[in-house]
Design a protein around this nucleic acid. Sequence first.
DNA 1: CGGTCGTTTGAAGTGGTTCAAGCCTTGTGG
DNA 2: CCACAAGGCTTGAACCACTTCAAACGACCG
Lengths: 235, 235
Amino acid sequence: MAQPSGTYKAQVHPAVDGLIHSSGLSTSAAATLCDVIGPIERYPAAAVVSSIAPAPRLKWILSGWTCEMRVLPDGRRQIFSFEIPGDPVLSRPVNASNPCSVVALTSVECIDVAQTLSRARESERTEISRAMNAALNLAQERRYEDIIRLGRRSALQRLADLLLEFHDRLDQIGLVDERGFYLPLTQEHLADALGLSVVHVNRSLKALRLGGMATFRFGRVTQFDRERLVELLRS
Amino acid sequence: MAQPSGTYKAQVHPAVDGLIHSSGLSTSAAATLCDVIGPIERYPAAAVVSSIAPAPRLKWILSGWTCEMRVLPDGRRQIFSFEIPGDPVLSRPVNASNPCSVVALTSVECIDVAQTLSRARESERTEISRAMNAALNLAQERRYEDIIRLGRRSALQRLADLLLEFHDRLDQIGLVDERGFYLPLTQEHLADALGLSVVHVNRSLKALRLGGMATFRFGRVTQFDRERLVELLRS
DNA sequence: CGGTCGTTTGAAGTGGTTCAAGCCTTGTGG
DNA sequence: CCACAAGGCTTGAACCACTTCAAACGACCG
């Protein structure tokens, strides 16, 4: 799973695909990035991706899923975002004022951006760094959608909206085929992201399934009908 | 309302106070900032603070309140954030993919940050620019709290949490006195920020009032009991 | 093959919405 | 200075979306 030798193939590397897509990284800079990818950090599912240093560190996901989340005093959780290959994410040191932790949902491979950048030549360093920032910005913009989702949508719409987000993001990195896409989450994860109870997520998923709009089962989304899901958001 | 001549007095300038507080701007750089404050843009209540240029422009609020919001297809609104003097806010050109508009809630005075920076000397320019970014970052971090508010809190808690945020932010710029603070919003604004109906905001405000935790009436918050409001969030 | 975690379903309760009407406050024009 | 209009606030009653609790079922793992 390290970088390929020499030439870079877009199709085999969803993460690089994603960065190119979200930030307009040039293919030549992308090739450089592949070459200088530093020590790969690996985390098993459920591990916390935390910065050991006292300052936040920017990580870049090569493979696997993570989420940003916080556990509330009463034990309930709020998930703020999900990261897939090609996404940058800020991992912070664990302390009281930490707004969120980054948690691996599957086994995860990622790199430390600053560390990898230090291995690149000056010229490409700035371009890659700019691209990472652009991708980070894009993630920030998504938060507006998150807030609308929580503030002004019904349970069914929240699910539809989130599934659409997953579909479109995974599609950009080539992880969607005609049969659907993998979604390594439990219903509880969806509940914690959408501000709903697990039970109600279950019922809403059933409604989506019976309505023929999307089926989420065994970690896979199938029967995904983009048009009708979008339609659902307009009511 | 232009900058004072020569010396800078913290007490008379809530906006500068705020920037110092949120970003650790040095008092000398703050004095420079006051001196170079560029053409002041003025907007009446309900006006849209939009960038005429095709690119987003960073504005810095001198006086008055604004909010970031979006109107949904069905006419309902979602308010993403409120800005008070000393806050930076990104004003975007109006177009279809615009995530949000900045709207003046009172009459507002602000400056264009880039324009003002161009009037400062190199050395102070970087420091002021860094401070603006730090303040912008702080606003970003607040979004985590916003999401928890919407995702995992009851109506009463959402109100308590938002009032606490207002109180603490206004306190930092010296806009709270022992009698309380001004809050130039309608109940509908609160509803649109908290993802609730106006009617329910009204009932919840009544509950807070009867519970002796806070009274919001006629654009003023009084009887503000910080401890009990914090207590309310821990249940 | 048993245990654990995740999913599914039912029944009852509750927090928030919607609709509708009346009231209060503020601003405006006569 | 008063009358009126308009917008915001307040209240009641009915309804519905979502939660909670509880129990059973299914899939996966050692």
